[in-house]
């Protein structure tokens, strides 16, 4: 994961935010003008970031459990879980938050987080359910069932790892949504303005007519929000490549092929003139050799990366006439 440029960038951005958040007090007392806005901007981000991440995790576990369970267990139990999800799905999150928050003199961050959590989990659960439904009928799950694997093991060991990418992305998506939601609330002025964060910066900037002349007042806060969102997305891409063994080796394979001078995207099957690249059905290839497809070697339409375009060009595995018997004597 750390060798991946995308996720590395994301992690660095996130790391910088965290560092600034933690050491904000040290960074703050510099120049007079500098001081004002660093002090305003940075310390809140610590609280902000931690608060929302915390909440995001809550959301995550709810969504995962409900989504995967609903996806795997068929029948009315699934239908009722799914109906529950739908109810929460149509709850308008932001207005509800505004209402709840405005009921209280001084709504705590915890309260806001709770509302965000209640309204935020359904989408993830819904997506997960759909994905699980499709996973459920895959052969390897059927094989596990036929082997007599208990349901909890099928869900936790066979299915969940295959859903990691989606779970990670919905986690990141929810965190982003929560950050934006909180910022929006602060901007509207629903949560107390003494509670400093990027949203309140924008709030004050707007209140004081900073737009458009005093750009240094609102641009940093806006940029920070955007950067944080980008960092989270980049990390998400990285997680995706990391947890999906196929994507991972496709990336490695593509890199290896580039090194050897093959163009991955050429759409032409590379005909290997090196016997060590030929696939042998009995002995595995040496660990470092790139997987280069040769005509006649088994290919798989699902494989992403080096072989994909070649698959399409040749019609993939279907090109083998499935019904033709071979000489059996």
């Amino acid at each position: 994961m750390f060798r991946n440029a995308k996720s590395l960038t994301g992690l660095i951005i996130l790391g910088v935010f965290t560092l600034v958040a933690i050491f904000g007090d040290l960074l703050a007392p510099y120049g007079p003008l500098e001081k004002d806005f660093t002090a305003l901007k940075q310390p809140p981000s610590a609280q902000h970031l931690l608060g929302t991440t915390h909440m995001g995790e809550d959301v995550l576990s709810q969504a995962v459990i409900i989504g995967v369970t609903a996806g795997y267990i068929a029948g009315w139990r699934s239908e009722s879980l799914s109906a529950l999800t739908n109810v929460f799905l149509v709850l308008p999150g932001l207005p509800l938050m505004i209402i709840v928050a405005s009921q209280q003199e001084n709504p705590s961050l915890l309260l806001v987080s709770t509302v965000l959590a209640i309204t935020g989990w359904a989408w993830g659960a819904r997506v997960l359910r759909a994905q699980t439904l499709s996973l459920r009928n895959r052969d390897f799950i059927q094989a596990a069932r036929a082997n007599g694997e208990p349901i909890h093991r099928i869900i936790a060991v066979e299915m969940l790892p295959n859903l990691t990418a989606i779970i990670a992305s919905s986690f990141v998506g929810t965190v982003t949504a929560a950050v934006l939601g909180l910022t929006t609330l602060a901007f509207i002025g629903v949560i107390p303005i003494t509670n400093l964060n990027w949203g309140t910066i924008l709030f004050w900037a707007q209140q004081n007519g900073a737009f458009p002349d005093y750009w240094w007042w609102y641009v940093p806060a806006g940029l920070c929000i955007a950067l944080l969102g980008m960092a989270l997305s980049l990390i998400n891409f990285g997680i995706d490549e990391y947890v999906n063994p196929r994507l991972r080796s496709a990336g490695e394979r593509a890199r290896a092929m580039r090194k050897k001078g093959y163009k991955v995207s050429s759409g032409i099957t590379t005909v290997a003139d090196r016997p060590d690249l030929l696939e042998d059905s009995v002995t595995p290839p040496p660990p470092d050799s790139p997987h280069v497809d040769v005509p006649g070697a088994p290919v798989h339409g699902d494989d992403i990366g080096a072989v994909t375009e070649a698959d399409q060009a040749t019609g993939g595995p279907d090109v083998i006439p499935a019904g033709r018997p071979e000489r059996s004597a």
Binding site: R138, D139, F140, Q142, A143, P161
Partner: peptide, 16 residues
């Protein structure tokens, strides 16, 4: 009684 599935690309869990 055990079974060998048709598609070896789908019958093994890609994660494991």
């Amino acid at each position: 009684i055990r079974m060998v599935f048709q598609d070896p690309f789908a019958s093994l869990n890609p994660y494991h």
